[in-house]
Amino acid sequence: MNLPFVLAACLRRCAFVATLVLLCIAPRAVLAQTCTFTMSNIAFGNVSTITGSPVDATGTLTANCSGIAAANVEFCLSIGIPSGGFSPRTMTGPGGATLSYDIFTDSAHTTIWGSVASSSFPERIVDIPVVGGIVSVSLTVYGRVYAGQTTVQPGSYSQAFATTDTLFTYLAYTGTPPTCTGSSTPSDRLTFNVSATVIADCNMSAAPLAFPAATSLVSQVTANTSLSVTCVSGTPYTVALNAGTTGGGTVASRFMLLSGGTATVNYELYKDAAFTQPWGDGTNGTTTDSGTGTGTAQSLTVFGRVPAQTMQPSGNYSDTVTATLTF
């Protein structure tokens, strides 16, 4: 019988067939094309609305791609909230108050970063060459809070961007660049937040108080001047006046000193034209002046009086009073 020979032949034939099957099903390695994005928050920090200057801040958008079997990747980067408009965008604060700002593609803050869905404010398009199947890019996102928002009150303001407000599409290509219009895949969507804190802030300026020349002090001499106070809208403030630099004076009764001499002339400062409310620091029978900021300049009048007194040597008399603004 030839059975052993037949079995051997069968075994060899079966092994050969099995080997062919294994070779046929072995997979071919394929690189997966992927891009991942990250987006930082944009935090403006403290914002004063009375400085007359915008406040700037930046964020960062990064993209890292691998497995790209093409020469270039074109990124179509949309930042939206089109329901609220692109310019200006608005952060919301206390009681529904808003603070206007925008997001720009450039450090000069001239080109607003928009969306593929907008014809007026387009998305940002960036074309990056592929090196070894990899693309990495980091883009600065420029934010600016606009100046001149003098009626905005202090508080925390923010705007949250949801995944529906961003669309970051990436298109690998070789040759002619593709168009971003109508492109939605492959893509990614992210969330980020824009925030600012409007601070209670004030500034003040003062004009000199000049009494008219007098040949006699047998009767009182009066004059007035003004302090200009500008505070962020809704900010309460208080203005106090000190005793001046001439020795012997108090907040209720100050002295001017003769230039180049030691003689003094008594004078007083008041909040009212009737000279009934001495303006000082709240001590020694005096009071302070106060108000609430409107975001624009407010004028406070200082009424000065030199009461009747013994005539001193002729010459120029002066004193320096410090006004302290508390808010």
Rank of each mutant, 00 (worst) to 15 (best):
T105Y: 08
A108I: 05
S87Y: 09
A69T: 09
S83E: 15
T179C: 11
R89Y: 02
D188H: 05
L171S: 15
L139D: 15
Y101E: 01
G155M: 00
Y146E: 07
G59C: 09
T111V: 00
S100R: 15
C65F: 04
A70Q: 11
T92F: 07
G59R: 09
G67W: 02
I103Q: 09
S66N: 15
S136P: 03
D127F: 05
S183Q: 15
A172W: 03
G155K: 00
L77W: 08
L139Q: 15
V73M: 00
V137Y: 07
A196F: 03
T92C: 05
S100H: 12
G143D: 08
A70D: 07
A162I: 03
F168P: 00
T191Y: 12
Y101G: 02
D106E: 08
P82T: 01
A69L: 08
Q159E: 14
P82S: 12
T179V: 10
S119T: 10
S100Y: 14
A162T: 14
I125T: 15
T60M: 09
S78H: 02
N72P: 03
T197E: 13
N72A: 04
R189D: 02
R124S: 14
P129W: 09
G84S: 14
A172S: 14
A97P: 05
I81F: 08
D127N: 13
Y146L: 10
G59Q: 10
T191Q: 13
Q153V: 14
F75I: 05
T90F: 02
A71D: 15
V137F: 04
S119C: 07
D56L: 06
D188T: 12
T150R: 12
V141T: 10
G93K: 06
P122F: 01
G93C: 08
T185F: 03
T62P: 02
S78C: 05
S107L: 03
